[in-house]
Amino acid sequence: MDVEHGDVWEELRPLCARVMSVPPEAVVPQARLVADLGADSLDITELEAASEELFGVSLRGTDKSGVSTVGDVADLIVSLRARPAHTPAAR
């Protein structure tokens, strides 16, 4: 795990635990949001909003179809943070 992933993980883990009402030790990178942590659509929406605020990225308009685990969420946040602040919209 590189420094960026480590930083994101340290903040994402307690956030996921709080939003999904699970113990922090249950939040591991391979934990599936729905199947393992019991997230419902409201939890996912709350996690998205809180992640946007905490990490300063916008998850709106991103392809989240491959995001099913906590590790996937961390990867998405890291990739969004690595993008330049003003990328032109794809046409």
Rank of each mutant, 00 (worst) to 15 (best):
A26V: 06
A85I: 14
V73A: 02
V22K: 11
V19R: 09
A85K: 13
T87P: 06
R91Y: 06
A17T: 07
A74K: 02
K64M: 08
S58R: 14
W9R: 12
D43N: 15
E11T: 11
P23Q: 15
P29R: 04
G38A: 13
F55H: 12
D43M: 05
G66I: 05
V57N: 08
A49P: 02
P84L: 04
V19N: 05
C16S: 11
V70M: 12
L37I: 09
R18H: 04
G61K: 01
Q30K: 07
A82C: 01
L12K: 07
A89H: 09
R13Y: 05
A82L: 11
R83I: 01
P29V: 06
S51G: 13
L37Q: 04
G66W: 08
E52M: 07
A85N: 09
T45G: 05
T69S: 14
E53V: 11
E48Y: 03
R13V: 14
S41I: 04
A31D: 03
R83L: 12
A39L: 04
V57C: 05
E46K: 05
L47H: 02
L15N: 05
G61S: 08
E48P: 00
G71A: 09
S68I: 10
A74I: 02
M1S: 15
P88G: 10
D40R: 13
V22E: 03
L12S: 10
D7K: 15
L33W: 00
H86L: 14
V3W: 12
A89D: 06
E4Q: 14
R60L: 08
